[in-house]
Design a binder for these strands. Sequence first.
DNA 1: CCGGATCCTGGTCGATACTG
DNA 2: CAGTATCGACCAGGATCCGG
Lengths: 120, 120
Amino acid sequence: MCHSEESNAVREFLTKVGDKWSILLIVMLAKTPKHRARFSELHRMVDGISQRMLTTTLRNLERDGLLSREVFAEVPPRVEYELTPLGLTLLGPLQQLVDWIGNNWGSIKKTREHFDECSR
Amino acid sequence: MCHSEESNAVREFLTKVGDKWSILLIVMLAKTPKHRARFSELHRMVDGISQRMLTTTLRNLERDGLLSREVFAEVPPRVEYELTPLGLTLLGPLQQLVDWIGNNWGSIKKTREHFDECSR
DNA sequence: CCGGATCCTGGTCGATACTG
DNA sequence: CAGTATCGACCAGGATCCGG
């Protein structure tokens, strides 16, 4: 308690939603024309994610109301995921962060290498 | 390969910097008057963090060039941490995200509870 | 073929105790 | 006061198999 509900919310958010794949998944979904894609598309888009993690992450995001899941009773089966209105509102803040990362990640990597060299 | 260096950078960033405490620590440091605080202050400000994690996280952030560490040769010893210019540039994008979380975390929690009830 | 569930391992984090 | 060291629990996440 004490130090603001806010920091608590932030910490919980970062723990639950700020995991390795969630944010990236949202960003990738945002890049699709209708903010909508099927399982296998996402699997291809997010390089290096395992099927299990994709399933889990998508479930959690659905659970959080950030995206919705629609199953089509077809053969072969098809499942599509789409950003909800709430999910869409997250895009703005996220894009800022993504831009910052794009601009500064290179510099961070360099700083890090330098730091590691000096403390060797 | 293929899907952009950007998503790669984002993933790496989220893995390294987007861990449980880093962002929260930066946000808390941003709240101090001079963007500067000593170890024990941060320990008190970030509710629930262990000494070990505080040390580790601070080291990593220093390694990334997001904050700087200054040791004073006193008794009792004093160590202060301060956001670097690079760290300060991160504050803008981060604040957007923090605001969003503040506004929407409650709603997410509710959605989640509802979801869990239905699938019980 | 598409999407989900199970099993297992390795890294991460917290608790505790100890130094300069 | 500001760390470091050690240990153990836990869970993220990869490999693999299963259902339709």
